[in-house]
Design a protein around this nucleic acid. Structure first.
Lengths: 238, 238
DNA sequence: CGTCAGCTTGAAAATGCTCAATGGAAGTGG
DNA sequence: CCACTTCCATTGAGCATTTTCAAGCTGACG
């Protein structure tokens, strides 16, 4: 809750966290959304693992990632955690249909986000059809992503899941040869629905087979992209 | 593709399939959507396992279930099938963001659906802000459902999954004591992401423990609703 | 009464999990 | 600069769960 923030001043470069998280994890912003009035938003900085909002909180605002990575998640009674998704630069998150947060959100690494007022959006949506249409587009995008995630979790072996995850992240890497992971193993495990040991073992076995090269825990060299793609799309089980 | 259909005639009771599938599997229709001009739609009947549309087809229409149950699914190269969801009376399905079907749809049992023209919707949405807003509501509902499904698949043991599924279907049963399943075991398995044997074994074990009573393959008496609920919500692992 | 499709059950095999130990890199303080 | 701590990742061994393969059961229907 102790969120460090800075009001956005026009014509002054805001103190982005771009130094610590460089040009990595870029995603093209949906063209329609990137031009929302910035003056309506407030730039906020979050440090690693800092909470953005918590499940069941009142949803008074929503966000857009400027730099860094944010995770949305849910924790069960027994302590198990389910990670719904990772948000990167350009992604919108925290738009709730009901009044309260259905998930919690945290900074995976140091992040910069713009916070918008929900009420302002409601008003804009009522006045401007374009805004409503943009929201619809956003919702459909989110829907597609959720379906993809369910599909990933539903069928597919541990190997297929990990590879699919790697391919998903390869998309965000500027350098196509080396995937730079923003998150620890625990996050990957909670996203894919198993334990860190399994993630680790599968990465190790891919490394042993020279399909990938584990440069460090967070840096993975893609040595055989064609094999990865074959496994990830479910064409090969081996 | 051999879909039997009948053009909707105002003031004439359409030949619903309500005889074969009575008042079961009802879901309250979203208030905003139930009043879409019926004259724009066409009543269509589908028999069990009949295709409504196929993945990658051009999406020229979308649908609302009047009676019966529809499943949306995806088939992999290796033959594995992933069932995205089951649609019951009042549910809208087949609205695509892109121009083509992301999933296939089939009748689980004999069904009656109303088919609407997509283009008509596009025009309505452009003219009427209300329609756009309704679409948004629908998309958000779908998003919530997809997230729930991903959450169900992600963590949770086979027992928890099956129980969660039963509770989900209990909602659709008019009689709260006896759950009437519309679909075969294979559908349940493909929805929950495992094999029919596992589904069968878990139902048998719940029956053995007198938590449920297997009246027949499709009829399940709920004997200990409180225990079911405890397992389904993840409070108990036993 | 036989057939057939869908469901159940059993035994063996595979997959992923738990528990426990080890390794390794970054940060801290002497 | 070097111990020391700490956090995260890896690895191994045994265990639990789920799958696979195969056989039997059941109810619907001709």
């Amino acid at each position: 809750m102790l969120t460090s923030y800075a009001t956005f001043r026009p014509y002054a470069a805001p103190a982005f966290h771009t130094d610590s998280t460089p040009a990595l994890w870029r995603r093209l912003a949906p063209a329609e959304l990137q031009d929302w009035p910035r003056s309506l938003g407030t730039i906020r900085l979050f440090t690693q693992d800092q909470e953005v909002y918590c499940e069941r909180d009142e949803a008074q605002s929503f966000f857009k990632v400027v730099s860094g990575v944010v995770r949305t998640y849910k924790v069960f009674y027994d302590g198990r955690r389910y990670i719904d998704g990772f948000l990167v630069a350009g992604d919108i998150f925290g738009i709730e249909f009901s009044g309260e947060r259905s998930l919690s959100a945290e900074a995976v690494c140091d992040c910069t986000v713009i916070s918008y007022c929900r009420q302002q959006l409601d008003i804009s949506a009522r006045e401007d059809v374009g805004v409503t249409r943009q929201l619809f587009t956003h919702a459909m995008r989110g829907l597609a992503r959720a379906q993809e995630h369910a599909l990933l979790l539903g069928r597919k072996s541990a190997l297929e899941k990990v590879v699919a995850f790697l391919l998903e992240w390869a998309e965000h890497s500027t350098n196509k040869d080396v995937i730079v992971l923003a998150m620890p193993r625990q996050d990957i495990a909670d996203y894919l629905g198993f334990t860190i040991e399994t993630v680790s073992r599968i990465l190790s076995s891919l490394d042993r087979d020279s399909i990938i090269g584990l440069l460090s825990a967070r840096q993975i060299r893609v040595m055989r992209p064609e094999i990865l793609r074959a496994i990830g799309t479910g064409c090969v089980t081996d």
